[in-house]
Design a protein around this nucleic acid. Structure first.
Length: 414
RNA sequence: CGGGGUGUGGCGCAGUUGAUAGCGCGCUCGGUUUGGGACCGAGAGGUCGAAGGUUUGAGUCCUUUCACCCCGACCA
C-alpha cells in the first residue's frame, strides 16, 4: 500500500475524550475511527490487523475440527423466549427493534440460542456428532457504560464457537482440545507468556469455567497467578475451598490486573434440555446434546495487544498481526524514488506486505509515522545509501539499525 | 443507573468584571528547504454541543436537554 493512496492520516495529538492508551494510539495512527461511545469503525489499516488476528484464530479452530459459518445479526424473539432470555429483566444488554408489521426482533448480543436452533435442523442421529461450529460475529450489546477504547464496546467482534457432543467424554475431549488451541492462538498473537488459563465462576453444570486472562493494567479483572503451574484464579472464586481443590497455597499466588480475552463454558445438557435439543442414540431413543461454548474477543485482543506492545513513540505490532511487515521509507531525489519504486515492486512480488511511504514529506515525519504505526521492519532507501548499495534496516521493537546489502535485506524480511 | 468532569475552526487549547472570537498544529497557494515531525509570505475555515430565557448587548449569567470522558455498579 502506498501511503499517498491511503485516505487515513496520522495525527500528533489524540482526541481529548479518549483516555485509554489503545484508543489514543489506534486513533492517532488511523487504525480505528470512533463513531460514538463504545462504537468504532476499522479503517483499511485496522481491518488488516483484525483479519490477521482472525486468520490465526480461524486456522486453530479449523485444526481442532471447527466449521466456520456466520449467523445473522437480526434474531427472532421466539428463539430467546424458549430459554427465558428475551426478557429485559433477565438480559439487560438487548438492543431490540420492530419490523414494519410490528414483529419484534433483537440484535444479536450472543448467538447461543440462535446457533442451537439452526443446528437442530440438521442434527438427527448420534452419527452426526460431534458438531463444532464457530463464527466471527459483531455482537451488539446495550452496555450501560462503554470504556477502555476498543476493549469494551457496545459493538465488538467476537469469535464464538459451540460444540455439540454425544456425551461427556466426547465433550471433554473437545473442551481440552480447545484449551490447547486457545493456548496456540495466544502464543501466535504474541500474548502467550502473559495469558493464563484462569479458573472462574462456572455455569450451572460445572464448578468452574475457564477464562483466558492476559495480564494487562488496562484490564477490568483481577486474577491470582501461579507462574510455575501456568494457571490463575479469578478473584471472584478465590477462597480456601478453591485453593484446596487446586492444590495451591495462597502465598504462591501473585495478584495482577488482567483482561479477559477468552472464555470457555461447559453447558452440560442443561441448555439442550431448555431448548429441547436432542438426537437419536444407538438404541433409537432421544438423547440430549452435550453443549459447550467458547469465545475469543477479537477486537478486545487487538486492544490488549496495543496496550501491551507500545512505547512512547507508538504501537509495536507483533509481526504476525501487523498490517504490514515492512515500512518502506524513501529519501531523496529521482534516483532514490526510482530505486524505492523498484524495491516496492519486488516486495509486492514476493508477497511481503509493505507500507510504502511515497509521500513528499520530510524524513523525520516518515520515521515518526513508521513508529506510530508500529510496523515491525523499516527499510530506508536514500541517495546517500544508494551510493554504497546499502539499505538501512530498523527493527521497531528493539530500535536496532543496521546497514544491509540487498541480499542481506531480503534474508531479514522474507 | 449513582457520583464527578468536559463540550469554542479538522485536532489540541485560550478567552478577564457580559461588549468586533483568538493561538498552536493541520489544510490551500507561492517560494526556500530535504536523514528525526523545516522556514518565510499570503489565504481558507467557527450560528462557541442544542433549545429556551435574562440583558441595550451572552462563548461568558439562568433553565432545560444532548453528547463525551472518568470512578462505581453491571458484565450469562
Amino acid at each position: 500500500m502506498r501511503l499517498t493512496k491511503l485516505f487515513t492520516k496520522t495525527s500528533k495529538t489524540a482526541p481529548a475524550d479518549e483516555v485509554a492508551k489503545n484508543a489514543q494510539l489506534l486513533i492517532r495512527a488511523g487504525y480505528v475511527y470512533k463513531v460514538m461511545a463504545g462504537v468504532y469503525a476499522y479503517t483499511p489499516l485496522g481491518i488488516r490487523v483484525l483479519e490477521n488476528i482472525k486468520q490465526i484464530v480461524r486456522e486453530e479452530m479449523d485444526a481442532i475440527g471447527g466449521q466456520e459459518l456466520i449467523m445473522s445479526s437480526l434474531q427472532k424473539k421466539e428463539t430467546w423466549e424458549e430459554t427465558g432470555r428475551w426478557d429485559d429483566e433477565v438480559v439487560d444488554v438487548w438492543f431490540k427493534s420492530k419490523l414494519k408489521d410490528n414483529t419484534e426482533v433483537g440484535f444479536g448480543w450472543s448467538h447461543e440460542e440462535a446457533i442451537i436452533e439452526m443446528v437442530k435442523q440438521y442434527l438427527e442421529s448420534y452419527k452426526d456428532l460431534p458438531i463444532n461450529v464457530y463464527q466471527f460475529q459483531t455482537k451488539l450489546r446495550n452496555e450501560l457504560r462503554a470504556k477502555s477504547g476498543i476493549m469494551r464496546g457496545r459493538e465488538f467482534v467476537m469469535k464464538d464457537m459451540y460444540s455439540c457432543s454425544v456425551d461427556e467424554a466426547q465433550h471433554n475431549q473437545f473442551y481440552n482440545d480447545t484449551i490447547d488451541a486457545y493456548n496456540r492462538v495466544f502464543d501466535r498473537l504474541g500474548l502467550g507468556d502473559d495469558t493464563y488459563v484462569t479458573f472462574a465462576s462456572g455455569g450451572a453444570f460445572t464448578q468452574f469455567s475457564h477464562e483466558f486472562q492476559t495480564v494487562c493494567e488496562a484490564g477490568e479483572d483481577v486474577i491470582y497467578v501461579h507462574r510455575e503451574k501456568n494457571i490463575a484464579i479469578n478473584e471472584e472464586v478465590l477462597d480456601e475451598a478453591t485453593l484446596t481443590k487446586l492444590g495451591i497455597e495462597r502465598e504462591e499466588l501473585e495478584k495482577v490486573k488482567s483482561a479477559e480475552v477468552g472464555n470457555i463454558f461447559n453447558f452440560g445438557i442443561q441448555k439442550s434440555k431448555d431448548t429441547n435439543f436432542t438426537f437419536t442414540n444407538a438404541e433409537g431413543k432421544k438423547q440430549h446434546v452435550y453443549l459447550g461454548s467458547y469465545g475469543i474477543g477479537i477486537t478486545r485482543v487487538m486492544g490488549v495487544i496495543v496496550e501491551k506492545f507500545s512505547d512512547d513513540k507508538g504501537i509495536v505490532w507483533p509481526v504476525n498481526i501487523a498490517p504490514a511487515k515492512v515500512y518502506l521509507v524513501r529519501i531523496g531525489e529521482q534516483a532514490a524514488i526510482d530505486h524505492a519504486d523498484e524495491l516496492y515492486s519486488e516486495l509486492l512480488e514476493k508477497n511481503i506486505e509493505t507500507l510504502y511511504d511515497d509521500r513528499d514529506v520530510r524524513p523525520g515525519q516518515k520515521f515518526a509515522d513508521s513508529e506510530l504505526l508500529g510496523i515491525p521492519y523499516r527499510v530506508t532507501v536514500s541517495d546517500r545509501l544508494l551510493a554504497d548499495n546499502q539499505y538501512e534496516f530498523t527493527d521497531r521493537k528493539t530500535g536496532e539499525t543496521s546497514l544491509l546489502t540487498r541480499d542481506q535485506l531480503f534474508a531479514k524480511i522474507s
